[in-house]
Design a protein around this nucleic acid. Structure first.
Length: 836
RNA sequence: GCCGGUGUGGUGGAAUGGUAGACACAGGAGACUUAAAAUCUCCCGGUAGCAAUACCGUACCGGUUCGAGUCCGGUCACCGGCACCA
């Protein structure tokens, strides 16, 4: 028999809507709190896809178990609704983005409720709600007041299609992360946030949090802290030049200098550079290149020698030529590097091309063929004066010390992390609450005037001159200066999408507070988030940004913890079937054709879901066919939570079949209210396994254990007490069906509670042990068979039983046992030798 | 190039150094049924054999160990991230 999931799920969802069993109670001191968090979705027009339920269900399961364990649980949901896709959709269809957003939120809400998640819907937030973004703006004002927000003209990443600047984190392989269009450099005046001021703390505080290791390493690499030396060189131009190097030991091998095309010194030296026209032309060419071109063509070094510029090597006194080349970045170090072609491959390539001398200062390689980048401490310095004979490891601090004494060098820490480009020339974002006054400069609007509401506009189209659509709203733009009362103009750029999501987890703690971002009481009760699960793709974006904002909020006393999240886990992607997989083809010709047409793609059975491949799975369809409980169970059973997994329509049926088997157990159950003797061990073992597995996100093996227990129930029969435990363990995974069974079996009446409100079952360690153990018997490490012996049998008993096996008799004939290895209840290994 | 990760049946995947393949999907056989579906029971890594059984088997090569998918050294392949960061 199959259970009527449609009616049952509707019934219980209506019940939960009314009775609110998921309401979190701020300040409840009688229970421990648990704050579980998932990344709130972006409400796209396409609706929920199967990627969403994986993390949502996992944390739903975790929080459901925590509630049963007696915790006061906060498991909230909201919508990260500002952003480009909605704005683009609005432009295309001539609807206001706010209208689109509300429709999408409605659809997402319907879908999420259909999946039966235990969200506290009364705490739902929407980043586009002025009541919400009032506080996003408020935080920006505090950043501004603390000199962490500043406007500057700089070359920025400009997406040619979105007509908008992008943060470094939004540029992937030289193209726009969102639309894939090339990104070029453009000089623009932009709001920036000084995230670099927090670089050290963002790295160091990772030591104190429970994040999965790959998240920590990725953040550390992204921030990219390195300790090196700044060395100052004298020049004939009147200015000294300073370079940053992590290899101070190679100073004797420096044969030239390179300056970035964007470096301001070039302009200053203009009149004294003999070939200025060439240099200027090179600068212009470099500016025209996109990031992609600049990075991709990295093998082919280009540059121009600055004629007339001479630089003195402080250790050799030698005169070095200087070049301008775009392989030196303005944004890292000092924008000038010392060229050491013997021991840096890029410098080597450059030196080869321009015929510069290559000097070996570290022995071990062949610098006529390639740069020798020494890593081990066996590498010995040569041609390096007082460093000769030292290892690289010794030479670096020795040179540092010498440089410091001589006054032309000092230790310096550098980061790859850059300040955060915070403004966007788009409509659908939070207005930046500042005005520009000719007399007073940038002035914040009074906090009492927040929120600064996004005005209605006729057209949201980005302008070709790169200004925000808001700039055309002259009524709104022209205002008075809060400082002097004179005429002033509003900032017309808006905030990036990452703004609203950088602090949303705090708003959940106190979502309706009009006077504060979050009350002290609520923040001290709920903070920090106990468990946050989200995608790896946010590691260097949202996760880093929100840690930065949280640290700032800590500094100004809004929050009481240095870190927002105590624990961070990450889920793998869900892949769809690859329609072009060679395995689908029947004949060799078809296979060959697929390989030719799709190349390496054709070798993969599963690929990312996409509309164009037609392999997208819609959760609505799955729920319609099998029910939400099946959807939830399957997405948890699909495989290791952290790894990518492939969706299989076939395998979904297995989860449905299991739920039907559970349902049909109701007909097999005997009246006994206790756990039955025949199931005592399996029930206790399963409680232990499921409890441990849920806490460790091993949902697939937790479900496998439940399946194994149900298989046992079918084989041996079960009591009412056995079923009661099963229902409690299954409740986090399949809450609708479980509540229905709970009611039908009379437990609801007996306890006056829903199953989800019962205490989580406990196990008795002594009862997890079977009366007998099946032990492996090995001869010289080779498996010969198994014996069943009483649990915890000693060596004598086990060996006797083992020797009784025919195979063992045969294998030990004419041999003597020289050693016996016994692993209790697991195996016995007899080491034998021919008898003399 | 650098940093992470992964490699196990036809498939998804299990295995604190201790019986490799739990639990499923697909497939096969049987029961029930007029029949089908559903359900229930059993089989299901490879080779040889009627069978008992024997040998092989966790990407590849080597090592440690009574015993290695698991630990160590090396190689290859794939996936993800970063990348002219001096």
């Amino acid at each position: 028999m199959q259970y009527d999931f449609a009616a049952i799920e509707k019934k219980w969802q209506d019940n939960w809507e009314k009775t609110k069993p998921y309401a979190a109670i701020t300040g409840d001191k009688t229970r421990k709190k648990f704050y579980g968090l998932i990344e709130f979705p972006y409400p796209s027009a396409a609706g929920l896809h199967v990627g969403h339920p994986r993390p949502f269900t996992a944390i739903d399961v975790v929080t459901r178990k925590k509630r049963m364990e007696g915790y006061n649980v906060l498991f909230p949901i909201g919508f990260d609704a500002f952003g480009l896709p909605t704005e683009n959709f609005a432009i295309k269809n001539h609807v206001h983005p706010a209208v689109v957003t509300q429709e999408n939120i409605k659809n997402f809400t319907r879908q999420l409720k259909m999946l039966g998640y235990g969200f506290d819907w009364d705490r739902c937030v929407d980043t586009t709600d002025p009541k919400y973004y009032k506080w996003t703006q408020w935080i920006f004002l505090q950043l501004f007041k603390h000199d962490l927000a500043y406007k500057t003209t700089m070359p920025v990443n400009w997406c040619t299609s979105c007509k908008c600047v992008l943060a470094n984190e939004e540029v992937v392989e030289g193209v726009c992360e969102r639309c894939g269009s090339p990104v070029i450099r453009k000089e623009k005046s932009q709001w920036m946030l000084r995230i670099t001021k927090y670089a050290d703390r963002l790295i160091d505080d990772l030591d104190g949090v429970d994040f999965i290791e790959r998240v920590k390493t990725q953040q550390r690499n992204w921030i990219g802290r390195s300790t090196g030396t700044e060395v100052t060189f004298k020049t004939n131009m009147g200015d000294d030049v300073t370079v940053y190097t992590t290899r101070a030991d190679t100073l004797f091998g420096t044969t030239y200098m390179v300056i970035s095309p964007e470096h301001p010194l070039l302009k200053k030296w203009k009149d004294r550079i003999a070939n200025w026209a060439d240099v200027e032309e090179y600068q212009a060419a470099a500016a025209r290149k996109s990031d992609f071109e600049r990075g991709e063509l990295n093998k082919d070094k280009t540059g121009v020698r600055l004629e007339g510029v001479e630089v003195i090597n402080p250790v050799t006194g030698g005169v070095l030529p200087m070049f301008v080349s775009d392989y030196v970045l303005m944004g890292y170090g000092t924008g000038i590097v010392m060229g050491v072609p013997g021991h840096d491959q890029r410098d080597w390539d450059f030196a080869k091309k321009f015929g510069l001398p290559i000097v070996e200062v570290v022995k071990g390689g062949d610098v006529t063929k390639e740069a020798f980048v020494a890593k081990d401490d066996k590498a010995i310095m040569v041609n390096s004066g007082f460093l000769n004979g030292m290892t690289v490891k010794e030479a670096i601090p020795a040179m540092k010390k010498y440089a410091l004494e001589q006054g032309w060098g000092k230790e310096k820490v550098n980061f790859k992390l850059r300040d955060w480009v915070f403004s966007r020339q788009r409509y659908w974002g939070e207005p930046i609450p500042l005005v520009n006054c000719e007399k007073c400069g940038w002035v914040p609007i009074p906090e009492s005037e927040l929120p600064l509401v996004l005005p209605q506009v006729e057209s949201y189209e980005p302008t070709d001159d790169g200004e925000s659509p808001l700039s055309k709203m002259t009524d709104w733009v022209n205002t008075t200066c809060p400082c002097c009362g004179g005429p002033a103009k509003r900032e017309t750029d808006t905030m990036p999408q990452w703004a609203g999501s950088s602090w949303y987890f705090l708003r959940y703690m106190d979502p309706h507070n009009d006077n504060e971002l979050v009350s002290k009481e609520a923040e001290e009760y709920w903070g920090p988030v106990d468990w946050y699960n989200g995608g790896m793709e946010h590691t260097t974006l949202h996760l880093l940004y929100s840690r930065f904002w949280h640290k700032f909020l800590y500094d100004i006393g809004v929050v009481h913890t240095k870190e927002p999240y105590a624990k961070r886990t990450s889920h793998g992607m869900i892949l769809g079937k690859n329609p072009h997989y060679v395995g689908n083809a029947k004949t060799e010709e078809e296979k060959q054709a697929l390989r030719e047409k799709y190349g390496a793609q054709a070798e993969r059975p599963a690929v990312k879901m996409s509309k164009s491949l037609g392999n997208v799975v819609n959760p609505d369809d799955v729920i319609k066919a099998y029910g939400a409980d099946t959807m939830r169970l399957y997405i948890m059973f699909i495989g290791d939570f952290e790894k990518t997994a492939s969706w299989s329509d076939e395998a979904v049926k297995g989860s449905k079949r299991f739920l039907d088997r559970c349902w049909n157990l109701m007909d097999k159950v005997t009246d006994e209210a206790e756990i039955s003797q025949q199931n005592m061990a399996v029930v206790n073992k399963t409680i232990k396994k499921v409890s441990y597995d849920i806490d460790n996100l091993k949902m697939n093996t937790a479900i496998a254990a439940l399946m194994a227990m149900v298989n046992d129930f079918y084989a041996k029969g079960l009591s009412k007490g056995d079923l009661e435990v099963l229902l409690k363990l299954l409740s986090p995974f399949a809450p609708h069906m479980v509540e229905e069974m709970w009611e039908l079996m009379g437990y609801a009446a007996k306890y006056g509670k829903m199953c989800m409100q019962m205490p989580w079952p406990e196990y008795d360690e002594s009862k997890t042990i079977d009366a007998t153990a099946e032990m492996a018997v090995q001869i010289n490490g080779k498996l010969k068979g198994t014996v069943v012996v009483p649990t915890d049998s000693g060596e004598e008993t086990v060996v006797a039983a083992a020797m009784a096996l025919d195979k063992v008799k045969k294998a030990t004939e004419g041999m003597s046992v020289v050693k016996t290895i016994l692993v209790k209840n697991k195996l016995v290994n007899l080491i034998v030798k021919p008898a003399k």
